[in-house]
C-alpha cells in the first residue's frame, strides 16, 4: 500500500519497526521495564539490609555499580528502586495528563466565562512552586508512595491543562471544525475527531518531560523525608544519597543517573516516533 496512514490507528508493530526513533525508543523502554520487572522478584544481593559488605567499593564484577556507605550493592538497589520510581512517575504523569487534557479541552472548547474561571485557577496553581505544592499535599496525606503519586499528579496536571487549552483554542476556530458543526456533528465527536488529533503531538512531548521530572521529584520528596522512606531504594533517592560523595565516589549516583537517562531518552524517542507515525503528513518517509 502506497497510501500513508495517520492517526492512532497508524500505530502498528510494522510502523514502529520502520521508524528508527520509535524502534530505538521501544527497545530502551522495554529494556528498562524488563530490568525493573526482574528487580521486583530477584536481585543479586539484598538491596535493603546491611549485610556487612564493605562500604564504598568501586564498580567491579562482583558489584557492577559498587557499594554504598552501608556496604549495600548499588546495582541491586537500582534494580529494586526502579519499581518505585517508574510506578510513581508513570501513574502520576498518566493521571496528570488525563486530568489536564480534560480540563484543557473543556476550558478551551467551551470558552467564555468557563474558560476565564478555569484559566485563573490554572494560573493560580502554576504560581505555587511545584515542590512546595507537592510537599503540602504529602504533608496533608502523610508520607507514602501513594501520597507522593497523588501529589505529583495534582502538581503536574496544571501544566498539561494550560498547554492543551492553548492548542484547543488555536484549533477550535478552524474552518474544518466549523464545517463539522455545520454538518450537525455533536460537540463530543468534534472534540474526539477534529480537535484531539492536533493535541496528541504536544501531549506526547509534554508527557516525556513530565516523566523525567516525576522521577526526580519523587526523589526530592524522599530526600525531604516525605514519600518513600529509606532504606527502601528509588532511583531518585539513590541519586541524592550519592550527592554528598560525588567527588570521591561518583559511582554512587552514576548507576541511578544512567537509568533515569535511559528511561527519559527511551520515552522521548518513542514519543517522537509515535508523533511522526500519528501525523499523516510526515508518513511518507
Amino acid at each position: 500500500m502506497d497510501v500513508p496512514q495517520g492517526g492512532v490507528r497508524a500505530i502498528t508493530i510494522r510502523a514502529i519497526v520502520n521508524n528508527k526513533r520509535a524502534l530505538l525508543g521501544t527497545i530502551l523502554v522495554a529494556a528498562v521495564l524488563l530490568f525493573t520487572l526482574v528487580g521486583v522478584f530477584w536481585t543479586p544481593y539484598n538491596p535493603i539490609s546491611f549485610g556487612g559488605g564493605k562500604s564504598f567499593l568501586s564498580p567491579s564484577w562482583l558489584h557492577p555499580a559498587g557499594t554504598d556507605i552501608y556496604g549495600r550493592d548499588i546495582f541491586s538497589r537500582i534494580m529494586a528502586g526502579g519499581q518505585t520510581s517508574l510506578s510513581i512517575a508513570g501513574v502520576a504523569v498518566a493521571v496528570a495528563a488525563t486530568m489536564g487534557s480534560i480540563i484543557g479541552v473543556v476550558s478551551g472548547f467551551i470558552g467564555g466565562i468557563v474558560d476565564v474561571i478555569v484559566s485563573r485557577v490554572v494560573d493560580l496553581m502554576l504560581a505555587i512552586p511545584a515542590l512546595v505544592f507537592a510537599l503540602g499535599i504529602v504533608a496533608l496525606l502523610g508520607p507514602s508512595a501513594q501520597s507522593v503519586t497523588v501529589a505529583l499528579s495534582v502538581v503536574y496536571m496544571w501544566q498539561f491543562a494550560r498547554v492543551i487549552r492553548s492548542i484547543v483554542i488555536s484549533v477550535r476556530n478552524k474552518t474544518y471544525v466549523e464545517a463539522s458543526r455545520g454538518l450537525g456533528v455533536s460537540p463530543i465527536a468534534i472534540i474526539v475527531k477534529d480537535i484531539f488529533p492536533s493535541v496528541v503531538p504536544i501531549l506526547v512531548v509534554q508527557i516525556t518531560t513530565a516523566l523525567a521530572w516525576g522521577i526526580l521529584d519523587e526523589a526530592n520528596l524522599g530526600f525531604l523525608g516525605l514519600g518513600v522512606q529509606p532504606p527502601s531504594p528509588s532511583w531518585g533517592s539513590l541519586l541524592i544519597e550519592g550527592r554528598e560523595y560525588l567527588f570521591d565516589t561518583p559511582w554512587l549516583s552514576l548507576g541511578a543517573g544512567t537509568m533515569v537517562l535511559i528511561t527519559v531518552l527511551g520515552v522521548n524517542l518513542l514519543g517522537d516516533g509515535l508523533r511522526d507515525i500519528i501525523d499523516p503528513r510526515s508518513a511518507e518517509k
Binding site: Y176, A179, G184, K193, D279, P280
Partner: peptide, 22 residues
C-alpha cells in the same frame, strides 16, 4: 462550502472520515 479548501479539511482525517461525519 468554504472559501479555502486547504483550511476546511482536517489534515488528520481521511476522505472517508470526512465524508462519513455527516
Amino acid at each position: 462550502v468554504f472559501q479555502n479548501p486547504f483550511a476546511s479539511l482536517n489534515p488528520f482525517r481521511t476522505v472517508r472520515d470526512v465524508l462519513s461525519s455527516g
